[in-house]
Simulated assay, not measured.
Amino acid sequence: MDKLKPTVRCLKCRKKLKGRSDKKFCNDHCKSAYHYKKSLEGELKFYNDVLRILRNNRKILKLYNREGKSTVRCGVLLEEGFNPKFFTHYWKNSKGDVYLFVFEFGFLKRSEHGKDKYVLVKWQEYMEH
């Protein structure tokens, strides 16, 4: 019994392919467009992953800083999924402390009485100067 040969289609435009059995594209344009789209998908995945982390960090900082300034143990934020490696900008105060910000919510890691904590602040107009 002869096996039916499956129809092979161009990976880009889905037209039936003729010729070699290992052919993947119907022409150079389809091949180039397909690989360009794939390269963009890789870039977009990275961008979307970072944006997701930043949004989550902002949500957590907002949740634990309702008053404009607060202090919370590092472990509490980390358990919520906070990732301190991702932030949008920083601000250095007159004492030399560098606050890392996720949009309008900032954090500064401190150690008090042997416990790691974050001082949380909200962006203020005076910080622009």
Rank of each mutant, 00 (worst) to 15 (best):
T7S: 10
K85I: 04
L63H: 08
L17A: 06
L61A: 02
R14A: 06
L61H: 05
L100D: 07
C13I: 07
L17V: 06
L11T: 02
C13D: 08
H35F: 14
L11Q: 10
V8T: 09
Y64V: 02
F105S: 02
G96R: 13
C26D: 07
N48G: 07
L61Y: 03
V98I: 15
N48K: 13
K62L: 10
K5R: 13
F101Q: 03
D2F: 08
F101E: 00
V102R: 02
V76W: 01
D22C: 06
R66N: 10
K122N: 01
H129T: 08
L100C: 11
E41V: 09
I60Q: 03
Y64R: 06
E125F: 11
F105A: 03
F107Q: 05
K45G: 08
Y126V: 05
M127L: 08
N57A: 05
G81W: 04
I60E: 00
T7D: 10
G75R: 05
Y99H: 12
K18G: 09
Y90Q: 08
S94T: 14
F46E: 15
K16E: 14
R20K: 13
F107I: 06
L40K: 12
R110V: 09
W91C: 00
C74V: 02
F87H: 00
K45E: 14
K37D: 14
L11G: 03
K37M: 13
K23G: 04
Y126G: 04
K15G: 04
V50P: 08
K59Y: 12
C10H: 04
L100P: 01
F105V: 01
R58N: 13
K24H: 07
K59Q: 11
Y118A: 00
H29N: 13
K62T: 06
G42N: 13
S21C: 04
G81D: 04
P6T: 05
D49W: 05
K31F: 08
S32G: 03
F107D: 00
V102S: 03
E41W: 08
V98N: 11
G19R: 10
M127D: 01
V98R: 15
D28K: 09
K59T: 07
K117F: 09
Y36A: 12
L44D: 15
K37R: 14
K109C: 04
E104T: 09
K23Y: 08
D28V: 07
C13H: 11
